[in-house]
Amino acid sequence: MKPLPLYGLRLLLLGTFLGTWGLLARNAELAFFIGHPWQVLERLWNWLATGSGVLEVQWQGQNLVVMHFPGTLYPHLLVTLAETLIALLIGVVTGLLAGFCLGLMPAVAHLLSPFIKAANAIPRVVLAPLFLMWFGLGMPSKIALAVSLVFFAVFFNVYQGVREVSPALLANVRLLGASRWQLVRLVYLPSAAGWVFSSLNMVTGLALAGVVVGEYLGASRGIGYLILQAEATFDVNAVMAGIVVLTFCALCLDAVFARIERRLQAWRNLDP
Rank of each mutant, 00 (worst) to 15 (best):
A171R: 07
A128G: 06
S191V: 02
L175K: 13
R263G: 09
E261T: 14
L189R: 14
T204M: 11
G161R: 10
L186A: 14
V244K: 04
I227Q: 08
L130M: 12
G177M: 03
T233F: 12
Q229T: 05
A258M: 12
V158P: 12
R174S: 12
V244D: 02
V212C: 03
A219L: 00
A241T: 06
T247D: 03
I223F: 05
L145E: 10
L130C: 02
G136F: 02
V245C: 05
F234H: 09
A207Y: 03
A168I: 14
L149G: 11
R221G: 14
G161H: 11
A178V: 06
G194T: 04
Q182F: 02
P190S: 04
R259L: 15
S166W: 02
G161K: 10
C249M: 15
A171C: 01
F155D: 08
L226G: 01
P190A: 02
L208F: 05
G222I: 00
A241V: 07
L145W: 12
R163F: 09
V196M: 01
G136I: 00
M139C: 08
W134M: 11
L228N: 14
E231Q: 15
V236P: 03
T204C: 08
Y216E: 04
L175T: 12
S199R: 01
L228F: 13
W181A: 14
Q182N: 01
V244Y: 05
R174Q: 13
F257R: 06
Y216T: 09
L132I: 05
V239Q: 06
G205N: 04
G177H: 04
L149K: 06
R185W: 14
L200T: 10
F234D: 05
V158W: 08
I223S: 01
A128P: 05
V173H: 07
M240Q: 08
F155R: 03
L149I: 05
V184Y: 11
A266N: 15
I243F: 07
P129L: 02
S179C: 00
F197T: 01
W195N: 15
G242M: 06
G194P: 04
A250G: 13
F152N: 02
S148W: 14
D254S: 13
